[in-house]
Design a protein around this nucleic acid. Structure first.
Lengths: 197, 197, 197, 197
DNA sequence: TATGAATGAGGTTTCATTCAT
DNA sequence: TATGAATGAAACCTCATTCAT
């Protein structure tokens, strides 16, 4: 097995374990067992436990960015692009609960633990949203007075809070489609009744 | 000093320490020192470390619910009510960074750690939003097709993600007012350019 | 309530609690609760936890000595005296399981913990046996080559080990009477088949 | 060093420390220091402190059973067998004071602490006595009316109480030989003067 | 590279004892 | 005398990390 393979095997194992137990409750030996390597082997690929967490983000979110970017590239309409982002995000979070939990919980932990960890990949991911909004503004589809820097957080926050509930409660009140539909309505048209007739 | 006072003194100390270090990195002795009591004294008021965390939520969010409810009671307009909620929430999070961090980080931790902790007070808090939306729907101000159960999460998630950034980054790109204005525009009118003229 | 009463109330409570939980697992607050006094009150009557244990011995065994001595005083026959001692001891241990356990377990603990605790009352109790033996030797009923100092321990040890089993196992294979009969046979006549005919 | 060696090294260290301080006063770090391993190492071999105590019994008494059984195997006479048992027991207790104390004190503690610990090895040890008695009864050497189940406890209790005194008092009033002689006289022939002439 | 036994620092919790009331 | 809230020392146990093989 190549080094890169083992590295990624550990990353995946760690994602699973962090998701299940949380960063602090996860033991290195749990990750080692999940990855089927010896405890000591982990330290040949990572500096310490925290380094694993950071790597999990970088790799998992990195691949998320890749997938989403690819999906978006074939769609020119900024409205549709936003919907695609939401769909891909929620679908992924529903499918990959491990990743979902790691993002929801550990993202916050880690942001706190090391101020100098810039969440590069994560920023990149969020910035996909603002890029879409800017594009829409250039095309006069999105209101010019919307600040992409705030809107991207509002949009991501909305999606994240919804998928958070999916993670902790077994029942899923609303389907992905229902949710997308609601989110798009709210973010595109707002909640007010429109009296345009 | 009365028992109730000491209880609340420990709660406030714990909020501070949890915010600064996170639940897992916080030591009981940190909380004790902050509260100016002996380590053992804490166990006269709480069963264990986790019980402190739960209590912090219940009490801090409980008082948040109280304040917000009071503010809302004097305003009949559902549009304004939503704005008041956003304003009070963001203002509080900006002012009380400890509480903000505890909500953002530990809320997620605890939800994960004990599935049977129903986050009663927190649910109550979030439900203020859905109650406002329902009221607005009855008055035909908010669209009937908006599902309050989803919208409340979207709205809270948006606010929470924004205040999360405030907590971790020292620079404050946007003021509370700016942010409120953006959030209200998005949630009430949406991001699309309206061609009603 | 007089001081002496409270003192003895605590002693009895302690005997109960020590028997149930053992000295180390017993908490002062357990004893206080059992005695229906405040924790601090105990320290008005005893110097520390260990002092309570010593006092329990002195008092409980003291009263045992008194009772046994009284029973023995009316019986002149050394053979019967020994039987009375065995009967009283086993009956008491069976009736007062608390005392039994305290003797069996804590006697050994305490003897170890403080070398300078001479178990005065306990020695006095054991010496009742050697006194009986000496009396019997004077009357040429007991063999002159029996050393009372060893025989007293053998006799007490035999009784104690038997009552120990009673304490830990719920089933009581043998009755007190059966046991006495066996013990007296062994100690008086030995286990060998006698070919005197 | 092999794992088995380290296991046994810890057992011996624990026996020593428990004997010296008693189970409750013994600290894990005491045992670790005595065994010249790190505190944590102990938990690679034992589940918890109590598990160490149980293991000490099983191992130490197990080897006692082995030795005694071996000594007995070459002696056919039930009278001599009993004497051999007493001699080996008392000799061992005098030589290995640590083991003696652990048996005397902790045997009682542990029997109390966990009702479901059956003291397997210890029962096996005691049952050596009843087996000898039964053998003697078959050969019409020991009285048929002696109940081996009671007699075994009486015999063991007698030996144990005597060795208990050896442990706690430095002076040794009686030698092993003296004691054996007394014990055998009592248990075989009883204390009564025999008028067979 | 890989292993996994060993390390030892560190934290939660308990509880005997004190002391202000 | 009596109380019981407060104290704070102490110990079991965990687990990230190391290192000899």
């Amino acid at each position: 097995m190549k080094a890169a393979d083992k590295h990624s095997k550990i990353i995946h194992a760690a994602t699973k374990v962090f998701a299940k137990k949380g960063f602090f409750n996860a033991r290195i030996s749990d990750i080692a067992k999940e990855a089927k390597v010896a405890d000591g082997t982990i330290y040949l690929y990572f500096n310490n436990k925290f380094d694993i967490l950071i790597s999990v983000f970088e790799e998992e979110i990195g691949s998320l960015v890749e997938q989403v970017t690819k999906s978006l590239s074939v769609e020119p309409d900024p409205r549709k692009k936003l919907e695609i982002f939401a769909t891909r995000h929620l679908t992924m979070m529903k499918k990959n609960k491990n990743l979902a939990e790691v993002i929801q919980i550990e993202l916050r932990q880690s942001a706190k633990l090391i101020k100098d960890y810039r969440n590069n990949k994560f920023s990149e991911y969020i910035d996909i949203i603002s890029t879409i909004i800017k594009l829409g503004q250039e095309q006069h589809i999105y209101r010019a007075d919307i600040k992409p820097g705030i809107a991207k957080r509002a949009f991501f926050g909305a999606l994240d809070e919804i998928s958070r509930i999916w993670s902790i409660s077994l029942e899923t009140e609303y389907s992905v489609d229902d949710t997308i539909s609601q989110i798009m309505t709210i973010f595109l048209s707002g909640m007010l009744v429109t009296h345009t007739e």
